[in-house]
Design a protein around this nucleic acid. Structure first.
Lengths: 255, 255
DNA sequence: TCCGTTTTTTATTATTTTTACAAATAAATA
DNA sequence: TATTTATTTGTAAAAATAATAAAAAACGGA
């Protein structure tokens, strides 16, 4: 086995698992670590992967400081953490819907696709995060683009959505209120989100702690439609209520 | 066994396994390594395989599609200049369609909207450039997102496009050839561009000088459908032809 | 037989991999 | 927080492997 074949193997491994380790590659390829490092260096120079300590990843680890708008900076750490937790729920060969918002962008950034993944989304920033991965098929909904959220709304988005049914929906919301349910800033956005709920088997809500007890203009749905809520922290009375009606609660790790 | 038979055997082996080694071929063909190397060299010259150290592989292992961002760097100055010129054609209260590609992204960047402007586009990077302006209404076409161009293609895009008729279409193309007409890399992209042409009153092509005389895979249309071509420089025979059939020519300023 | 072509042999050069060890980095401990 | 410990990295020289060039040998027709 020569260097080119090794390179192909490494690329294949990294596409399948998201990352590789020098030692594992030594084992499976039967060469010394120096050789592997040289291979990894070459592949990094060729922009095919990113070197890390002890291995390499498919993703650039130093792209954390990319442009995020003002909204995303609020509760950023919580959102990153929620995004990571949500990303861990994405399975091999899944087909998922991702809604708009800043939290879902963090989710998109954390997704490292294993095998194939199909994503339907209204959010342009989610799409841009995901098309970096060759193995992800992204279906961008169409329609009028909202200036505030760089996501589409309206009849065209609805119409495309009618053609899909996905295993999971990840929805970022603006308000989570015991009586009012979940809500978002605009009525049209809420309508689209409602459609998304109908197009998914499992509905997963991403909401940082600041969202609880808040009501936003457009009501999306009652909690009966919700399967899971991911948050950094949830008030006591909400936890009790969610448990009583069978909504799964996932509290993400603090960092 | 003569050299032709050896070549056939090598091709067969490489098709079956993806790669071959010089030493294995020596063994199985019963000839010296020098002979095998000569065979491999010949086959590489005939573009039937790629040579590696110690063997050969079926295809260039490092050939990955160039991403938009890298593509944009090619002929960047020309594209900026073409983009500026094209932007100057956008009028008050216009409604326009903008195709995908790197040149059109430069166009989007140069547009400074006066009053209202409605833009329909398949390209996500065009949308992102334009939603910075509050007065621009952007309609993003939907569908499967191409990884290489961050733009959508397919039936959903077509369907949305059916609902609009715009005053101008700005189209970036990959090839402009006297006999073949205008063309682009993918067949589906070409189909969508064709639809766009039908949805616009005036068709404006953006093509830097490197595009002339080039034919790309997907044919978009003949020159009869074209109203205007903007370029940094156009070969003499093309100018003559365009003038004879009434295609307007705009040469942009060099900077 | 001779002649032209192809293949092999041989020697040299180039490339790749390994070994060995010091420096740098991350993790664990006090 | 500082210090120790274990890993990981980088580098250069040595060893192994592969490629190249040129001369010699083998082959296959006239």
């Amino acid at each position: 086995m020569n260097n080119v074949e090794r390179h192909q193997y490494i690329i294949q491994q990294i596409n399948a698992n998201g990352n590789v380790s020098v030692l594992d590659l030594c084992d499976s390829l039967g060469v010394s670590s120096v050789t592997i490092r040289k291979d990894l260096q070459f592949l990094e120079d060729s922009k095919l992967l990113f070197r890390t300590h002890g291995g390499a990843t498919i993703q650039n680890p130093y792209q954390t400081d990319r442009h995020v708008n003002e909204k995303a900076k609020l509760h950023e750490l919580e959102k990153v953490s929620i995004g990571k937790k949500a990303a861990s729920l994405v399975m091999k060969n899944d087909s998922i819907i991702i809604g708009s918002g800043t939290t879902t962008q963090f989710l998109a950034r954390e997704i490292i696709p294993i095998d194939n993944l199909t994503v339907v989304t209204s959010a342009l920033n989610v799409t841009l995060e995901l098309i970096k991965h060759q193995t992800v098929e992204v279906i961008q909904l169409g329609g009028v683009v909202r200036h505030t959220s760089s996501s589409v709304i309206g009849q065209y988005a609805d119409a495309i959505l009618n053609n899909f049914f996905c295993s999971k929906l990840f929805l970022g919301v603006d308000g989570v209120d015991l009586e009012y349910g979940i809500s978002t800033t605009s009525a049209q956005e809420a309508m689209l989100n409602h459609k998304m709920i109908d197009a998914a088997q499992k509905v997963i809500i991403l909401a940082d702690s600041s969202k609880f007890g808040r009501k936003s203009f457009g009501k999306i749905a009652d909690f009966s439609k919700i399967d899971t809520i991911i948050s950094d922290s949830i008030p006591e009375e909400y936890i009790d209520y969610f448990e009583s009606i069978g909504v799964e609660i996932i509290i993400c790790d603090k960092e």
